[in-house]
Nucleic acid binder design. Structure first.
Lengths: 109, 109
DNA sequence: CCACTGTATCGTTATATAGTTATATGAGCC
DNA sequence: GGCTCATATAACTATATAACGATACAGTGG
């Protein structure tokens, strides 16, 4: 299961994927997409972000393969590409929860 | 398995974790640690990074809980805190490989 | 105490990018 | 064609941070 040595190029690609997830704004967009596909306008309402800003974040998420894009007439529908994103977030969330639990336990001691 | 809504604060914490992994230099350090715990000096040799730079990256990885620290005399030994890092990287690597395979298939068509 | 080694921190510079405003592209309708 | 709405892109500013050199701060041995 553990991966072999990665080439510098591969390491960069991995870092690029993590960087796409390293922004609270983009995580909030992904969260908003958990309810199903949404247009940019719908996402503006859901997140409160400006249109240009939102569009740029969506480009990043699409370029890194985390969201899928579907054009329908004038609108563009974005959706989660698969559930890897959720798996990644769950892993990290689990870590954070464990840390917090540890810290609480340490303080209560 | 899918997580409930996260608070803004929690989203920030998650983003912070991803950001720690969003740097090729830090990924290379983590790779170097897959062989077991290493001192800063050993990591300098393994990665070719400058000492100050390396130390700062290690602080980030430690603050985000990805590496553990053990002082022994003058030296400080760093190691992978657990294998979540490997699981995270594997997930992302799998995605990249699938993308590359898809692209190859599209070109070969 | 002094010198030495290993690690952490500080100060600086260069680069990346989030957010904003203004503008461009493009589809559907008159 | 012109008009409007939805989305994307460009140009800019402000902020973050990676990398580097210099320095500070332990531990250890003399």
């Amino acid at each position: 299961m553990t991966r072999r040595q990665l080439t510098p190029r591969q390491v960069e690609l991995v870092a690029e994927r993590f960087k796409a997830l390293a922004e609270p704004s983009r995580l909030r967009i992904l969260q908003a997409l958990r309810g199903g596909e949404r247009t940019v306008t719908e996402l503006m309402e859901a997140t409160g972000f400006g249109q240009a800003n939102l569009s740029k974040h969506l480009q990043v998420l699409h370029a890194t393969g985390f969201v899928a894009r579907r054009k329908a007439g004038v609108s563009v529908y974005y959706s989660l590409a698969d559930d890897d994103v959720l798996a990644l977030c769950d892993l990290v969330c689990g870590r954070i929860e464990r840390e917090l639990a540890d810290r609480r336990r340490a303080l209560a001691r």
